[in-house]
């Protein structure tokens, strides 16, 4: 497919995300692998009632100043702007020391629902959705709140619970390099949730450090094949 996948700006790339959409956001923590320019563009775009699937809820600009002088944006901006009705992830809270993160504030005000998922289960639910499977049995969370309301099964004498797949309307991901087709490679631990989320959305939008010509990425090292990637925006570091 040689369709033109390039978008000149993050704003254009996220323009058609509608109210009520389910969005996966790559990355791991508050920085490193986070498609931050796409996130900020989505906050400007203003879509509401979003379901956001991401590992961490973000710290928000104010609290980020404690981590880096001058502060920085992360996923917290979508909660600050009241754009999210549900968060699905493994690290929603900051650890209980006031002040709260934007997500915690919204949660405490009853404005957002949170589904806390073990990190590996989150990854596997996404992989399952991406790969056309109807769910999987895992030992993770047996005997805890995570198991509540889920089907249980004993396999070879060990207890498992049934987890369901996750998919999304859009995935916002961060990669290091893309070629003209949309083949992606990542950089160091910034890979994290990005490749699996890239495979699980109807429309995957990749923010990349650098665009290269087809043929310049070694086929042996391509992590995300271009069939999964629909839109690409280059944001130079």
């Amino acid at each position: 497919m040689t369709l033109n996948k390039f978008f000149k700006s993050c704003d254009e790339a996220v323009a058609d995300i509608s109210d009520g959409a389910t969005i996966m956001v790559g990355g791991f923590g508050s920085y490193g692998g986070l498609p931050i320019n796409l996130i900020v563009a989505l906050s400007r775009q203003g879509a509401k009632d979003l379901t956001v699937i991401a590992n961490m809820g973000g710290v928000g600009f104010e609290l980020s100043k404690r981590i880096k002088p001058g502060g920085y944006q992360d996923l917290g901006i979508l909660f600050e702007k009241g754009q999210v009705k549900k968060f699905i992830g493994s690290v929603p809270a900051l650890g209980g020391m006031p002040p709260d993160s934007p997500l915690e504030k919204m949660y405490n005000e009853g404005k957002v629902e949170i589904e806390v998922v073990p990190q590996g289960t989150l990854a596997e639910r996404i992989r399952c959705g991406a790969g056309g499977l109807g769910g999987f049995y895992t030992p993770v969370g047996v005997g805890t709140v995570v198991a509540e309301g889920k089907e249980k099964k004993v396999i070879d004498g060990k207890e498992f619970i049934l987890e369901s797949p996750l998919t999304a309307d859009f995935a916002l991901i961060k990669a290091h390099k893309a070629d003209n087709l949309g083949n992606l490679i990542y950089r160091r631990t910034a890979r994290c949730f990005n490749p699996v989320m890239a495979t699980a959305a109807a429309t995957t939008i990749a923010e990349v450090d650098e665009l290269v010509e087809v043929g310049q990425l070694d086929p042996e090292v391509v992590v995300t094949p271009h069939v999964y990637v629909h839109r690409i925006v280059e944001v130079k570091r």
Binding site: F28, G120, T121, Y186, R187
Partner: peptide, 30 residues
């Protein structure tokens, strides 16, 4: 910032370090 551990602390790579995605990582763990 592209080289951090799971506590989000900056770390270094060693000879023989490898990187992989999160689904692979938790398959390794489970």
């Amino acid at each position: 910032q592209d080289l951090i551990n799971a506590s989000c602390q900056p770390v270094t790579a060693l000879e023989g370090t490898s990187y992989f995605d999160i689904a692979e990582s938790f398959g390794m763990i489970r």
